[in-house]
Design a protein around this nucleic acid. Structure first.
Lengths: 206, 206
DNA sequence: GTTAGCATGTAAGGAGTTACATGATTTT
DNA sequence: AAAATCATGTAACTCCTTACATGCTAAC
């Protein structure tokens, strides 16, 4: 039932699949890379990590003194075998949550680990969802066309135009995917054998 | 503190400013016109109406038998004098909630009732917010450029392009507003003396 | 006559932000 | 030395969806 929570768990598992990380870093990545979690708070993330840890999907390990002279109380989270399996299950699913505004971005962010067939279903599902929205916009604008000031009209036109652009973009992606039907990974994917946790020598700010 | 709830109240007052309505109709308008409340449920709307009614901002009146032979249990809500005043206060404010993704659309939907000066501040605030976001996107893409697959890259480019387009759109609106500096209402605004409640002879479907 | 839409609500529960609480480390 | 950032959490609270409960009206 819980959609947003599942989404966060999915994203966390996906990011930890690339490399182990501690909570703070995880939050930064979540906020930056995925547009969905623009202002994810610790009050959401840490309980989520605790839950995942409790279910054995990730392991929590104190960061030892390898980094420097003094050991900070960092907790580095790592995907367990069970966690990898679970993420594999999730990533092969293409349910309705993969099509909506929040879900789609997150799913696409992990397309490199998604099978081509599933990718196609998600891309097409998203496109059809947007086309439904265009129909709604069109119907609505017909309904109250006369009593509409220019501001509302401009707002509606911009919304329609944006949606139309996303549909075109999706169509391009779908066509490209269709011409390379094998489960090819078009970009440099991070190494599946994640090279342990690399402590940042000069930490990236914000 | 409560942002989303204030937003809903604002939208309800704004819509009732145009003409009295009952809850069901209100929800349809909220879902259609304003993009923000895509799936507003009755569980949110009715308590909100009750609260507004309790505070004397709107009045709730049973819809009499004028409509047809049998009286349905419709409750028509109408803006009170206090409610109009309150909406006037809200619409003249340009706080941070007017700039974010959910807030901006709702605020702009009632620009026809907003003073030119406030409109400008909101448009410029929104644009500056989006420019901040562009900076963030740019910084993030620089940070993890090498370890990025083509899907993530495509997603990021699309997000950037969309944001850039919205900035351009806002700039056009701002320029247009600047060239007509008086508090002009560019479009046909609905009559301030709302012509009572017109029961739909042929009800619009969904 | 039965489905679909109109119309109004309540109860429960989950999700996630805000605010609080704390302390180490790095930069200025 | 002070300020900013890194880092981890908890508690309370708000918002909002889901599911439930009910009944009327129009269309097929």
């Amino acid at each position: 039932m819980s959609r947003r929570a599942d989404l966060l768990e999915f994203a966390v598992l996906g990011l930890l699949h690339e490399s182990p990380m501690h909570g703070y870093e995880l939050r930064k990545r979540l906020n930056a890379a995925l547009g969905a979690f623009r202002a994810l708070s610790y009050g959401t993330l840490y309980p989520c990590l605790k839950s995942l840890s409790g279910r054995g999907l990730i392991s929590a390990a104190q960061d030892g003194a390898e980094t420097g002279p003094s050991a900070r109380a960092r907790i580095v989270y790592e995907l367990t075998a069970t966690g990898k399996e679970h993420f594999g299950d999730l990533v092969s699913r293409a349910d309705a949550t993969a099509y909506d505004d929040e879900g789609f971005g997150v799913r696409m962010a992990f397309f490199a680990r998604t099978e081509s067939e599933v990718r196609m279903r998600i891309l097409e599902g998203r496109r059809s969802r947007l086309q439904d929205r265009l129909d709604l916009i069109h119907a609505a604008s017909l309904a109250h066309r006369e009593r509409m000031d220019s501001w509302t009209a401009a707002l509606e036109r911009h919304g329609e135009e944006s949606t139309r652009r996303e549909v075109r973009w999706l169509t391009e992606l779908i066509d490209a995917e269709r011409h390379t039907p094998r489960g090819s990974r078009p970009g440099p994917l991070t190494d599946p054998h994640h090279p342990a946790y690399t402590p940042p020598p000069n930490p990236t700010k914000e």
